[in-house]
């Protein structure tokens, strides 16, 4: 594991492009996080371990900063070893976490009070509702952070937008995870699902925001492209959040309703793969078009 990380940090690609490659690191983190959290969920289903209240709480709380620690290790730390580091990564993550704490969660829970009316709504209404409330709040706040911290001052190459958007997803989801686990005190397997769920939702929306910024800034696309990407980013929240919750709730029986965390886990894994696949495809396509347009060969934008 340590060798893998060190290899990632000082890969050939990293040495040859003075900029740290982004996509491989993001894929590695997503894969590792999904593997660890997925293993906890599956192991809990198979072995059904019983923890004391304190041990269970400690284990659940330990899962909250997992994406953040992984990101610090795989994405931030190696930045100090390249010639042209992305110096605002931690700033973006910290400010995203603070906006989630000061505005994101209070707006979602206390102002929109979505738990009061959205879970009971019909499927289509739920998707639209989550898109227009939680989705728009998250996207709006993360876009504001990116707009004022990195756009356009810290954008040197396309991969910068992806790296900073990933930082905002990590920072934002960290606070959501911590707040939920601290207040609700769920069992470790539920905490694992919550951490993966918040991370997947924030990652999906952040990547689409980044795609919009990339198209707007580097390709000087028509003015509608960025807002359209922001809408798609909010829509990902509207699609993933109710779907995961719906899949995890089992059918109502005489003994009550049982949770089905494996269904939720599969849905989250699928959404991570699909989101990464779509955004990477659009990103590569846009990069290829620019390369063709400028007739540049052999330029690889830190992939």
């Amino acid at each position: 594991m340590a060798q893998d990380l060190s290899r990632l940090a000082s890969s050939e690609a990293g040495d040859s492009y003075a900029l740290l490659p982004v996509w491989r690191r993001i894929s590695f983190q997503v894969l590792l996080l999904a593997a660890v959290l997925g293993a906890i969920v599956v192991a809990s289903q198979i072995f059904q371990p019983r923890f004391s209240a304190d041990a269970g709480r400690l284990l659940s709380l330990a899962l909250a900063p997992l994406p953040l620690l992984l990101w610090l290790l795989v994405s931030v730390w190696p930045e100090f070893r390249v010639a042209r580091p992305r110096r605002r990564l931690t700033g973006v993550a910290v400010l995203s976490g603070l906006t989630a704490s000061a505005l994101g969660l209070p707006l979602t829970e206390d102002f929109f009070r979505i738990e009061l009316w959205l879970p009971l709504a019909a499927v289509i209404q739920r998707v639209i509702g989550y898109t227009l409330t939680a989705g728009m709040i998250d996207v709006g706040l993360k876009f504001l952070v990116l707009r004022y911290l990195i756009y356009p001052g810290a954008l040197r190459m396309r991969s910068d937008a992806i790296a900073y958007a990933f930082a905002s997803a990590v920072g934002y989801s960290f606070y959501l995870n911590l707040a939920y686990i601290w207040r609700v005190d769920p069992a470790p397997d539920v905490a694992a699902i919550v951490v993966l769920s918040n991370f997947a939702i924030q990652l999906a929306s952040s990547l689409f925001i980044a795609l919009g910024i990339v198209e707007s800034y580097f390709s000087d696309a028509i003015p509608l492209v960025l807002p359209m990407n922001l809408f798609v980013a909010a829509l990902t929240t509207g699609l993933i959040r109710p779907t995961v919750a719906g899949l995890m709730s089992g059918p109502l029986g005489v003994t009550g309703s049982a949770d089905r965390p494996l269904f939720g886990l599969l849905m989250l894994l699928a959404s991570l793969v699909v989101t990464l696949g779509i955004v990477y495809f659009l990103y590569s396509n846009s990069e290829r078009r620019e390369r063709e347009a400028y007739g540049r060969r052999g330029v690889n934008d830190g992939i």
Binding site: M136, Y217, I222, P223, L224, L226, P227, F231
Partner: peptide, 16 residues
């Protein structure tokens, strides 16, 4: 064009 796209983004978020 980029200035317009940013303004439209704020507008979209506000409308949403």
């Amino acid at each position: 064009r980029q200035r317009w796209s940013i303004a439209l983004s704020y507008f979209l978020i506000a409308i949403g």
